[in-house]
C-alpha cells in the first residue's frame, strides 16, 4: 500500500553544510503492516517520516500511497490519509482548546463541510466514548483545556485523535519517549490495541529495542540515511534484544565501517 522508491534528500543543498540525510530509501509496506523503526541518533528516521508526511519535498525518488503518487502532494492534503504523532506531547494537540474541541478538530478530517457545526451532540458523544476506551477518566473532563492534562494523558488523547478518522497510514515518531516508563507502557498498550482494532498500517520509531521486537510484525533499521536491515517472519521472531544488537553491530561494521552505537534504553 505504501511504496517508496529510491528516495533521496539533501538538506542545505549547495552549501558547505549540505547533509545527505536520505540516501536511496526503498521500502514497500503491505496493508496492515506494523513496522518498528530503529537506528542511532541522526540516522534519518524522523527525516523519512517527514518525507512520507510531506513536510518537505524530496530531491528524487517517489512515494506512492494506495496507488496514488503523492511525491509532490502538499502536506495538509496527505494528512487526509496519513496521521502522525511526535515525541513532544505539545506538538500533537492545541493546548488552549478544550479536549472535545481538539477531538472535533481531528474529526474535521472526515467529510464534514467547513461551515458545519464543529461539535454536534452526536460528535460529543462519539468523542466521549472514544476517550472512555483509554480508561483514564478523561471522558469526564471533556471541557477541560488540553494544556491542563499531563504529558502522558495528552499523548494518549493525541493517539485517539490520530486514529479517530481511521488513517491509511499511521506514523509514530518516538511517541512514548517523553513519558515515564509506566505511562509509556500504557500508551504502547493503547497503541497496540487501537492499531489492531482498525488494522491500521503503522510505522513506529523507537529507541527501545525490546518494544521494537515485541510490537508489530516487522522491524527495519536505519543507518546514515539508508535502511540497513529489514526483519520479519521467523527470522525476527527468533531474535532477542542482544541478538538484534549483535546483528546491528555486524551490519554497520561491515557495510558502513562505523560502530557509532547509540542503541541504548534496552530495558
Amino acid at each position: 500500500m505504501l511504496k517508496i522508491t529510491d528516495l533521496h534528500k539533501t538538506f542545505l543543498k549547495g552549501t558547505p553544510n549540505a547533509h545527505h540525510a536520505l540516501r536511496g530509501i526503498n521500502l514497500t509496506l503491505n496493508d496492515g503492516d506494523f513496522v518498528t523503526v530503529i537506528g542511532s541518533n541522526g540516522a534519518g528516521k524522523s527525516t523519512l517520516f517527514n518525507a512520507i508526511a510531506g513536510s518537505f519535498l524530496c530531491d528524487s525518488g517517489s512515494i506512492v500511497l494506495d496507488g496514488q503518487d503523492i511525491t509532490f502532494v502538499k502536506e495538509h492534503r496527505r494528512a487526509k490519509q496519513i496521521s502522525r504523532m511526535f515525541q513532544d506531547p505539545m506538538l500533537g494537540t492545541a493546548p488552549d482548546l478544550t479536549i472535545q474541541e481538539n477531538m472535533a478538530l481531528a474529526y474535521s478530517k472526515s467529510v464534514k463541510g467547513m461551515l458545519s457545526w464543529a461539535l454536534s451532540k452526536q460528535d460529543a458523544q462519539l468523542f466521549r466514548e472514544t476517550l472512555a476506551q483509554l480508561n483514564m477518566g478523561i471522558e469526564d473532563r471533556m471541557k477541560t483545556k488540553m494544556g491542563q492534562l499531563s504529558g502522558g494523558q495528552r499523548q494518549a488523547v493525541a493517539l485517539m485523535m490520530a486514529t479517530l478518522v481511521t488513517p491509511r497510514l499511521l506514523l509514530l515518531d518516538e511517541h512514548t519517549a517523553a513519558l515515564d516508563p509506566v505511562t509509556a507502557e500504557k500508551v504502547l498498550d493503547i497503541t497496540r490495541d487501537v492499531v489492531a482494532k482498525h488494522s491500521i498500517t503503522t510505522m513506529m520509531i523507537t529507541h527501545n529495542i525490546a518494544s521494537a521486537l515485541s510490537m508489530g510484525n516487522r522491524t527495519i533499521m536505519m543507518e546514515q540515511g539508508q535502511i540497513v536491515l529489514d526483519l520479519s517472519g521467523p527470522e525476527r521472531d527468533n531474535l532477542d534484544v542482544s541478538g538484534l544488537l549483535e546483528l546491528y553491530r555486524q551490519r554497520c561494521n561491515r557495510e558502513l565501517d562505523n560502530d557509532r552505537m547509540l542503541l541504548n534504553h534496552d530495558n
Binding site: 494528512a79 505539545m90 506538538l91 500533537g92 494537540t93 493546548p95 478530517k109
Partner: peptide, 10 residues
Amino acid sequence: NNEAMVRASS
C-alpha cells in the same frame, strides 16, 4: 494555538 495540528487535520 498549534499550526502543525491544523495541517495534521488536513
